[in-house]
Amino acid sequence: MSIQHFRVALIPFFAAFCLPVFAHPETLVKVKDAEDQLGARVGYIELDLNSGKILESFRPEERFPMMSTFKVLLCGAVLSRVDAGQEQLGRRIHYSQNDLVEYSPVTEKHLTDGMTVRELCSAAITMSDNTAANLLLTTIGGPKELTAFLHNMGDHVTRLDRWEPELNEAIPNDERDTTMPAAMATTLRKLLTGELLTLASRQQLIDWMEADKVAGPLLRSALPAGWFIADKSGAGERGSRGIIAALGPDGKPSRIVVIYTTGSQATMDERNRQIAEIGASLIKHW
């Protein structure tokens, strides 16, 4: 067993022997301040990774656009098919120029040779490549099948209805392509620590998230040296922004954090800054 596999296998073990965790309302004060600064709703939840206990939450059962955070769930569904012998990570998928959609920095470079399922998941999570996500959605049967996968996990809230990039439209009061912070946090925890996926697939999923290259201005910008984070960000229309993450000190994750916002007129930089400040408060009061 590799060191990384050992780390993920012992996530519940280490967490069980940690000192009790206590909620700190100071972080919620910052979440509410972010709402004021952005002029928009902000949803927040913080779960203990081992027990699933909610440590703090704000608007945990209000719907927010998922945006690209759905790509972690998508690759979880792909990995479940791999575990069941219905898919192979090494299978190569070929596609054409007509398949390319807006923001496809990886797939646009491989029109000639195609990409493997493993490479597509890596591109979808680490670079948020939209064509990679659409190609992977095709392998599982489309958005409705991802929703069905989530329902089978016990998540009857999260739903995907459309493809990239239309799913980022974020129309107010439109339930399409949305989740709730509580539902997303619980589902992410199941994917990373539950028995739904094999140990190898859980490790692969967290490795992809740990290698995320496009979430630097968010929670990662607030992390002290030595902290662990595996995350996936999302951005959408109407001032929408979000991030889902597993993080913790001492090089291992111990909490799940989900943050979503929508309806702001603020710039992307300002949305990023507010999420980073929430992260800084979380870490300060850990």
Rank of each mutant, 00 (worst) to 15 (best):
P25R: 00
P25K: 06
E26D: 01
L28D: 03
V29Y: 15
V31L: 13
V31D: 07
V31M: 13
K32T: 07
K32W: 06
K32V: 11
A34S: 09
A34V: 04
A34K: 03
A34G: 03
E35G: 10
E35R: 06
D36L: 06
Q37E: 01
A40F: 09
A40T: 05
R41E: 15
V42G: 09
V42L: 15
G43F: 01
G43Y: 12
G43V: 09
Y44C: 03
Y44W: 08
I45E: 07
I45H: 12
E46L: 11
L47P: 01
D48W: 05
N50K: 10
N50L: 07
N50A: 09
N50E: 12
S51L: 02
S51Y: 06
K53G: 05
I54K: 03
I54Y: 13
S57W: 14
F58A: 04
F58H: 04
F58P: 01
P60W: 04
E61A: 01
E61H: 09
E62G: 08
R63L: 10
R63C: 07
R63Y: 11
P65C: 00
M66Q: 03
M66F: 01
M67N: 01
F70M: 07
F70S: 09
K71W: 13
V72P: 13
V72R: 02
L74T: 01
C75D: 01
G76T: 04
G76C: 02
G76M: 08
A77F: 12
V78K: 05
L79W: 05
S80Y: 14
R81T: 04
R81G: 08
V82G: 02
V82C: 01
A84R: 08
G85W: 01
Q88N: 07
Q88M: 01
Q88E: 07
Q88W: 08
Q88H: 10
G90P: 02
R91A: 07
I93H: 00
Y95T: 10
S96M: 06
S96I: 04
Q97N: 00
N98D: 11
N98T: 11
D99V: 09
D99M: 07
L100T: 07
L100G: 07
V101F: 07
E102I: 00
E102H: 02
Y103S: 12
S104F: 05
S104C: 05
S104D: 05
K109A: 04
T112A: 04
T112V: 05
D113S: 09
G114E: 12
M115L: 08
M115T: 05
V117T: 07
R118V: 05
R118C: 02
L120R: 06
A123M: 04
A124T: 05
A124L: 07
I125E: 05
I125P: 08
I125H: 05
I125T: 07
S128I: 03
A132S: 08
A132T: 06
N134V: 02
L137F: 00
T138N: 13
T138M: 08
G142N: 02
G142E: 00
L146V: 08
L146D: 06
L146K: 00
A148Q: 08
L150P: 00
L150V: 10
L150N: 02
L150D: 02
H151R: 05
N152R: 10
G154T: 06
G154P: 04
G154V: 07
H156N: 10
V157G: 10
V157W: 08
V157L: 13
T158A: 13
T158K: 09
R159N: 12
R159I: 02
R162L: 00
R162I: 05
P165G: 00
E166K: 04
E166V: 09
L167C: 00
L167Q: 02
L167G: 00
N168R: 13
E169S: 08
A170F: 00
I171Q: 01
P172N: 00
N173G: 13
D174N: 04
E175D: 02
D177F: 01
D177Q: 08
D177P: 06
T178S: 10
P181C: 01
P181S: 03
P181M: 01
A182M: 01
A183E: 09
M184S: 12
M184C: 06
A185G: 10
T186N: 12
T186C: 04
T186P: 08
T186G: 05
T187L: 03
R189V: 15
K190F: 14
L191E: 13
L191M: 03
T193W: 09
T193E: 12
E195A: 00
T198L: 03
L199Q: 10
S201D: 08
R202H: 03
R202Q: 02
Q203F: 00
Q204F: 01
L205T: 05
M209W: 13
E210Q: 09
E210L: 11
E210P: 06
A211L: 07
D212H: 15
D212C: 15
V214N: 15
A215N: 15
L218T: 15
L219P: 13
L219F: 15
L219T: 13
L219K: 13
R220K: 14
R220V: 08
S221W: 15
S221T: 14
P224D: 08
A225N: 04
G226N: 13
G226H: 09
W227D: 08
W227P: 10
F228C: 15
F228V: 15
F228T: 15
A230L: 12
D231R: 10
D231G: 15
D231Q: 15
K232L: 12
K232S: 12
K232N: 13
A235T: 00
A235R: 13
A235G: 00
G236D: 00
E237F: 14
G239N: 00
G239A: 06
S240L: 10
S240C: 00
R241K: 14
R241L: 15
I244T: 13
A245F: 13
L247M: 10
G248V: 07
P249E: 01
P249Y: 06
D250L: 12
G251L: 08
K252A: 09
K252Q: 05
P253G: 09
R255H: 11
I256D: 12
I259A: 12
I259H: 06
I259N: 02
T261H: 14
S264Y: 02
S264P: 00
T267R: 10
M268R: 15
D269Q: 15
R271W: 15
N272Y: 04
N272E: 09
N272H: 12
R273G: 13
R273E: 14
I275K: 13
I275M: 13
A276M: 12
A276L: 12
E277W: 09
G279M: 15
S281Y: 02
S281G: 11
S281H: 12
S281P: 11
L282F: 15
L282P: 10
L282G: 11
I283V: 06
I283R: 09
K284I: 05
K284Q: 03
H285R: 02
W286E: 04
W286F: 05
W286K: 08
